[in-house]
Amino acid sequence: MTTTRISYAELPAIVQAAVEAHTGPALKVESASEGFNSEIAAHLISQSGDYYVKGLRTDHRRVWTQRREAEVNPYVRGIAPALIARVESAGWDVLIFEAVDGHHADYRPDSPDLPKVVDVLRRLGEVPCPPIELRQAEQRLERYADHRADLGYFAGDALLHTDWNNTNVLVTGERAHVVDWAWATKGAPWLDTAYWVIWLIGAGRHEPASSEQWAGHVPAWHDAPAEGINAFAVANANVWDEIGGQDPDPWTARMIAAARKWRDYRKS
């Protein structure tokens, strides 16, 4: 479910002033087209540089995601854009990031971005899980696994991003950067690669087999038990069925189809 978006100019003046105490006076502000889980998402340009600003009202039901992103950020520098500041003012919780001048990753089969996504998955796999509060993967998937015993496959001590929508992967030069860490999770090291498989299939031209071939370039994938991958594919098909409900929009319907296609492939 998306969140109603407002423009930066609609923020209370006191909040804008608090933001610009860190960025310098805004010379230009453009609303961002991505990130609709935020009430405010904008690219801000000042004399000191370019910034990405995102925020929620403090009474929003998902405002906890702001704290999660702020806490994770110091541990994923070089993988995620650096957090400049967190502003809590006048009923708003706002994060200010350095802006990354890149494009959303292209997941098509012939895309030169795919090896860069493999690289960032590998680098993330080398990051120790930080000593912060994180939800556990087996908890997140508890209602969706076919068998309770399957949840053990998802448990682990790795830091996971879990949302490999291509709009969360920005490619600049030879590197990919991962944004939007709201759903950061602790779990088995191979799970992020498994999430990526679904998004590759959802891109429209990958078959499950070719998606898993790309997954095979990520070291953590080689430690994934086949039974665990099967259980994960089933659980995520159930997740997407729930997200879609009775009348999914075209974008969600595509992801439902991708998740089901992988589940059926793993069962065959």
Rank of each mutant, 00 (worst) to 15 (best):
A21Q: 14
A21H: 13
A21I: 05
T23G: 02
T23W: 02
G24K: 03
G24N: 09
A26P: 00
A26M: 00
L27M: 11
V29D: 04
V29H: 00
E30W: 02
A32S: 15
S33L: 11
S33Y: 03
S33H: 06
S33D: 14
N37T: 15
S38T: 11
E39R: 12
A42W: 06
I45G: 03
I45Y: 12
Q47D: 15
Q47M: 09
S48H: 15
V53E: 03
V53Y: 08
K54R: 14
G55P: 05
L56T: 04
D59Y: 04
H60A: 14
R61I: 09
V63Q: 13
W64M: 11
T65D: 05
T65H: 06
Q66I: 15
R68E: 03
A70F: 11
V72I: 14
V72D: 00
N73S: 13
N73P: 06
P74A: 12
I79Y: 00
I79Q: 00
A80I: 10
P81L: 03
P81Y: 04
A82P: 09
A82N: 09
L83N: 09
A85P: 12
R86K: 11
V87Q: 02
E88Q: 12
E88F: 03
E88W: 02
S89D: 12
G91N: 07
W92P: 02
W92G: 04
D93P: 07
I96R: 00
E98F: 01
A99E: 11
A99L: 13
V100T: 07
D101I: 09
H103Q: 07
H104K: 05
Y107S: 00
Y107W: 00
P109S: 08
D110I: 01
D110A: 12
S111I: 00
D113M: 10
D113Q: 11
D113T: 10
P115D: 12
K116L: 13
V118E: 06
V120N: 03
V120P: 07
R122D: 11
R123E: 12
R123F: 03
G125Q: 05
G125P: 11
C129S: 13
C129Y: 09
I132V: 15
E133H: 12
E133K: 14
L134H: 02
L134W: 09
R135Y: 10
R135I: 04
A137Y: 01
E138M: 03
E138D: 14
Q139S: 14
R140S: 00
L141A: 11
E142Y: 03
E142S: 15
A145Y: 01
D146V: 09
D146L: 15
Y153C: 06
A155H: 03
D157Y: 09
L159D: 01
H161E: 00
T162E: 10
